[in-house]
Design a protein around this nucleic acid. Structure first.
Lengths: 167, 167
DNA sequence: TTGCATCCGGTACCCGAGTACAGGCTTACC
DNA sequence: GGTAAGCCTGTACTCGGGTACCGGATGCAA
């Protein structure tokens, strides 16, 4: 292998990487804190110098986000990908995530149906609707779905901070 | 009209209303701060005494939440319902909300398709996938959908606080 | 060498819908 | 009167994914 073409003579500066990956410079430091980006080499003065591969890594992170993974999950997937030979980790995660997405779609479809009913019936007030056979009281029967309209706060065991470092 | 049956002799205590409506007592005070619940009468000692209708109001709020409305929207709908004769406000809001819900469902369906593709192809790593014709790079093409997986932060003009009082 | 752009770490803040806790007061019952 | 339960206000915290701002240091070109 020959040497790579010189990339900004020694690495990418924070703003160069940010521009190349389409994120803000603050986001890079945020990802570093979260453990998604390894701490890069520094100049003698303390400025970060990223390797060219960092651009690809950031694209991968964004792709995984688009698939519905949280940054914590992305970090874990990247970690398990680094540590060992290919296992089923990604696949398993994807299957679980798919299930999650399906559940959320179902909840939203329930809402859509109820909302369409309210529109169709011509409801004109939450409290004193004058429409005949008003469906509003029946909306009260269904539970409030988690995760979409209201934030889903169950299944969160450990307290965490946005400024934590990686384990 | 005869007098209502005595309800706890003068009104509902905070915990009585909370229990009757299926919410926490703190939530009642939170709703009061948000302007969803009017400030109730107090005992000489400063304890809140709610009218019996408050239970119904809370059920209405919960029903509206189930339809996908935020508390701000619910507050507005309740307000416009109180101020004037039935207008199309609720209907208009519901139509807009329905559109919102549909958009979110579409985003989630895009994610679902991509995720199913990843599972079907048998991807085993985010960074070094060994599967043939890996779909992962193509995931990078679609934009990150707002509102669902990542929080939607556009279209927020005014700064607001959770502890504000109603206007 | 001067001047300006960029970068540094640290902290605080945003969204929504609550929840949690501290320290003090009131109410109700015995 | 004593005591326990409930209520009060006020503040801080949760989730996730970043943003915004600060004072100070560094990098680079003219």
């Amino acid at each position: 292998m020959h040497r790579d073409l010189p990339v900004s003579l020694g690495g990418l500066r924070t703003s160069e990487l940010a521009t190349a990956a389409g994120v803000k410079t603050q986001t890079l430091r945020y990802y570093e804190r979260r453990g998604l980006l390894a701490e890069p080499v520094r100049t003698p003065g303390g400025h970060r110098l990223y390797p060219a591969e960092a651009v690809i890594l950031l694209r991968v992170i964004k792709a995984a986000q688009r698939l519905g993974f949280t940054l914590d999950e992305v970090a874990e997937l990247l970690d398990s990908g680094r540590r060992c030979h290919p296992t089923g980790a990604l696949r398993e995660r994807a299957v679980v995530k798919l299930d999650e997405i399906n559940t959320r779609i179902e909840h939203l479809e329930t809402i859509r149906t109820a909302l369409a009913g309210v529109i169709e019936a011509g409801c004109d007030s939450l409290t004193h609707c004058t429409c005949p056979e008003c469906p509003l009281p029946f909306v009260a029967i269904a539970p409030i779905p988690p995760g979409d309209v209201n934030l889903d706060v169950d299944a969160i065991p450990s307290r965490r901070t946005a400024t934590r470092r990686r384990s």
